[in-house]
Computed example of a mutant assay.
Amino acid sequence: MKEDRGGLKKLIELAKRGQIDAVVAYKDRLTRFGFEVKLFKAYGVNVIVAFQDDKDHTQELMEDFVEIVKSFA
């Protein structure tokens, strides 16, 4: 949930310059809430999710909630 991640900033800069066509990342490693995915797509960069799991939306929502609570603890 940190926004000051150096690797993410570098990827965004590369996308702005048009130096990358795609980003491959594990689910929830690139972003937690989807903003960066939309940002990359706005620059014409495809986001490819590696190793998707078969969790349902309720299970993912609960895991997200737990992570948010842990970040405030």
Results as ranks from 00 to 15, higher is better:
11 L>V: 04
18 G>V: 05
40 F>K: 01
30 L>N: 02
66 V>G: 00
52 Q>F: 05
50 A>M: 13
59 Q>I: 12
30 L>Q: 06
2 K>N: 09
12 I>W: 04
50 A>F: 14
4 D>P: 02
5 R>D: 12
50 A>P: 04
8 L>C: 03
41 K>F: 03
33 F>Y: 11
44 G>P: 08
21 D>E: 15
38 K>N: 12
11 L>Y: 03
45 V>I: 11
36 E>W: 02
18 G>S: 07
73 A>G: 10
3 E>C: 02
4 D>L: 08
52 Q>M: 11
47 V>M: 06
31 T>H: 05
39 L>V: 09
5 R>Q: 05
68 I>P: 00
26 Y>F: 09
32 R>Y: 08
25 A>E: 10
42 A>N: 14
17 R>W: 06
58 T>W: 15
62 M>R: 15
8 L>S: 05
49 V>N: 06
24 V>I: 15
49 V>F: 14
24 V>M: 11
56 D>W: 09
44 G>M: 10
32 R>I: 04
72 F>S: 00
12 I>R: 06
64 D>L: 12
15 A>L: 03
20 I>E: 12
57 H>Y: 11
15 A>Q: 03
15 A>N: 03
16 K>T: 08
21 D>A: 13
37 V>E: 10
69 V>D: 00
37 V>G: 01
14 L>G: 02
24 V>H: 08
71 S>M: 00
68 I>F: 08
49 V>T: 14
35 F>W: 14
38 K>L: 12
10 K>G: 03
68 I>H: 00
1 M>T: 01
67 E>H: 09
54 D>W: 07
48 I>R: 09
15 A>P: 04
11 L>H: 02
44 G>T: 11
65 F>H: 06
49 V>G: 03
19 Q>W: 14
39 L>A: 07
36 E>G: 00
37 V>Y: 02
65 F>D: 01
5 R>M: 02
41 K>C: 02
25 A>R: 02
32 R>F: 08
73 A>H: 02
67 E>A: 12
39 L>S: 04
30 L>K: 02
67 E>S: 11
20 I>A: 07
64 D>F: 11
2 K>H: 02
53 D>L: 10
32 R>V: 04
10 K>E: 13
30 L>P: 05
13 E>T: 09
45 V>L: 09
12 I>G: 02
16 K>A: 07
43 Y>S: 05
70 K>Q: 07
14 L>A: 11
24 V>Y: 15
25 A>Q: 03
65 F>E: 01
72 F>N: 00
61 L>E: 03
24 V>L: 15
34 G>D: 06
3 E>I: 05
69 V>R: 03
48 I>L: 15
53 D>H: 13
40 F>R: 01
70 K>E: 08
57 H>D: 14
9 K>E: 12
36 E>P: 00
48 I>F: 11
42 A>G: 13
69 V>S: 00
56 D>A: 10
51 F>H: 13
1 M>R: 07
68 I>L: 12
26 Y>V: 04
57 H>M: 13
18 G>F: 09
70 K>L: 04
33 F>E: 13
72 F>D: 00
39 L>R: 13
15 A>M: 06
17 R>V: 07
